[in-house]
Design a protein around this nucleic acid. Structure first.
Lengths: 402, 402
DNA sequence: TGTGCTATCGAAAACGATTAAGAAAACGAT
DNA sequence: ATCGTTTTCTTAATCGTTTTCGATAGCACA
């Protein structure tokens, strides 16, 4: 029993266990641990190089624990591969009896279709790419995004689609753009929810011919699902107004389409209510930025005429504001009222229960998924829509009546 | 110029524009809008059916806006497909000049490798399946899981891997198990973080020959990354003890390996400290279950000798407890101390800043990813390890000294 | 001139599935 | 008996890539 370690130029290595004129090749690259028993034809052995060349190897393949393929089933059933394929896919031109038999055998052999082969042939992956980008480059740790994604995923799965994250991944050839990555993976469609829709790579992706739906951003002639930020802010402001507040400050988020919508909703509603908002009452703090919210709140409280109620970019930022307020020995809502936005669980569970607007993440994700899938499956008959999902005012205890 | 709408049995439809002896076939199924110009051979037109049969069609294909393939590049460069493939993959047996030229042309043509074809051939998908399951069937809305996943994803991407969610997806043939789904998609490896590791489907997946790493669960002979729950609870309990507390209650989570570890850490540390824990002080509330935590806290406060400090299953549950405490007019930490677990952002930002143990989610995710990838890429030389990642005590203001 | 070696490149066989088109048999109607 | 139709199954091409082995040419050296 001789042993050789053979190396070709690509450094893929095979182990040859040579016994008489037979070779067992254990291919280390093959994950499914095939064992190939081959007969040796001609051997060229040159002493200066460590190359052994074997020509005319007759391979009798022996599956140790591989996956059954259509070919295996066709052999077992005595029919052609085409017949098996059509039987399993319920084509109508296969006899009842034959189909039953093929399906039974396929089940017995534990057959699973090969996704890659199917995708290669059909140009369909049943895979949807998601690009959820927040400041930290991943929407996963963002309450709002992750909640939308959760709902999106659930709906997509119900329709037989899988979810894969899009990223500017590096492969052997260096970095790929979002669009390139999506093309490479062959996503049937993509869903985007980003902080920064002005990123050229994001725009490239939206402009491409891949079916796309955006969340909380309106792109010309593309499917979009939008949380009703205008209506949400309006409802919240009206609520606060009806509670008797007239000195209302609004700390809005950093510039984005969401922020613009909320601001426009704020101003419009203020106008409707004949409410005067001093310029000093409109401030900015990034979303989820507790520190800035903390300092800006301090500045608001230091005003000669401080507001009686402060609206925050989101619940998280409100936490920062609440801390600033409490550090000054003021109570919520007795001394000052606050309101958040988003309706994250923590805001609803913790005292003082925050008055906030709960965005309907479940419906947003579900709608985005079903719209995208319609677009994928019936591209001609699907009309491009922009769907606005209303939020719900959550009445907590952080806004007092005066 | 005649027009026919042709339908075969499978309802796939083609549009034939017949002009003289030429046909333009616009295949509506093809997403990339190929246009095929075909010459008509023989036509069979039967008046009873709406079938047109065309035999011996000579197809000259004309790409309108398709993806460039190796074949296209090979034609453009005047070399074989094999040469192009090898040039792009930096094989050493291609001339310097040829390689440069091929790469340049490939770039010009916007070539992207076809993932499905590559996967079919190489049996590698560079795709990792993740199964993160909490009570809601998706770990996405779970702070701890989503944070681990975020870190996992980041590391995997750095190594050129994509992330796809595993699910018991239904396809045309009905539901697939987790294992079947993973095989079908051909994941190179899978990572599991579940509430319920006793699920037979989960066990099937772990037992399979797919490289796997589990988070927070120890399975015989499988790679695992574990948050140091024993050490975390020990540190927390010691901290509370050193603050002077002797009547310490522990509301632990529902039964799971994590809970068992924390409980054993709790009892062991109590023993070390010579701390007597009355049976009534050990209670149970499911993780993230604010309601049960609320009622159980009430019960603890009603004891003849109520605890001076209550430890909760996690930060969220602590919120429920805090509400119960405050409703009775008691202050934290002046009247009673509380401690959480996890270190979620809300707990750290909101008053009273919770004393808690921050699990090192970043390191857990990163380690899980790098270990899994090692297992995938060097299966023979990688030793199966169980890696424990310590957490950090976060000193808030919810535990008073006495 | 012959031999051995290297450096390049190509031919061709896979990988596993889908599907258009053809073929064969059976059947019914004229 | 002929023709058309339907049912059922097969043949063979194709998707795009990887990779083995062979082929060829050039070079050095005896």
């Amino acid at each position: 029993m001789l042993c050789f370690l053979w190396q070709n130029k690509r450094k893929t290595d095979f182990l040859y266990k040579i016994r008489y004129d037979e070779i067992d090749i254990i291919d280390k690259k093959m994950k499914n641990m095939k064992m190939i028993v081959a007969k040796l034809g001609k051997v060229m052995y040159s002493k200066n190089t460590k190359t052994i060349k074997c020509s005319t190897i007759q391979v009798q393949e022996e599956r140790v624990s591989g996956m059954a393929s259509l070919k295996d089933i066709s052999k077992a059933c005595g029919v052609s591969v085409a017949t098996v394929s059509k039987a399993l896919n319920n084509h109508t031109d296969i006899g009842e009896e034959t189909r039953e038999n093929i399906k039974r055998v396929a089940k017995e052999m534990g057959y699973l279709p090969n996704f890659s082969a199917r995708a290669l042939k059909t140009n369909r992956t049943y895979d949807i790419g998601v690009l959820f980008v927040d400041e930290a480059m991943s929407g996963l740790t963002h309450d709002y995004f992750s909640s939308v994604l959760d709902s999106f995923k659930r709906t997509a799965e119900k329709h037989g689609y899988d979810i894969t994250f899009i990223n500017g991944c590096k492969n052997r050839e260096g970095r790929m753009s979002y669009l390139e990555h999506s093309r490479y993976r062959g996503f049937d469609g993509v869903v985007l929810a980003c902080i920064d829709f002005s990123d050229p790579e994001v725009i490239d992706l939206i402009r491409s011919n891949i079916p796309v739906v955006t969340v909380d951003y309106l792109f010309n002639n593309r499917m979009a699902v939008l949380s009703d930020n205008v209506g949400g802010i309006r409802e919240l402001l009206r609520y606060i107004y009806n509670k008797g507040h007239r000195r209302i400050a609004y700390i809005h988020g950093a510039d984005s389409s969401v922020t613009q919508n909320r601001l426009s909703g704020f101003y419009k509603t203020a106008e409707e209510l004949d409410l005067e908002i001093p310029a000093a009452y409109i401030r900015e703090a990034a979303y989820r930025d507790t520190k800035t919210a903390y300092t800006v709140t301090g500045a608001l409280l230091d005003l000669p005429k401080p507001p009686t109620c402060i609206m925050y970019p989101d619940d998280f930022a409100a936490f920062g504001g609440i801390n600033a307020i409490r550090e000054r020995g003021m109570r919520i809502p007795e001394d000052i009222s606050v309101a958040g936005y988003d309706g994250i669980p923590a805001a609803i569970h913790l005292e003082p229960r925050l008055t906030t607007v709960k965005q309907n993440t479940e419906q947003i994700g579900r709608t985005a998924a079903s719209q995208l899938i319609r677009l994928i499956e019936k591209p001609k008959t699907t009309i491009i829509e922009q769907i606005v999902i209303p939020g719900d005012l959550v009445e907590g205890k952080s806004v007092a009546g005066i």
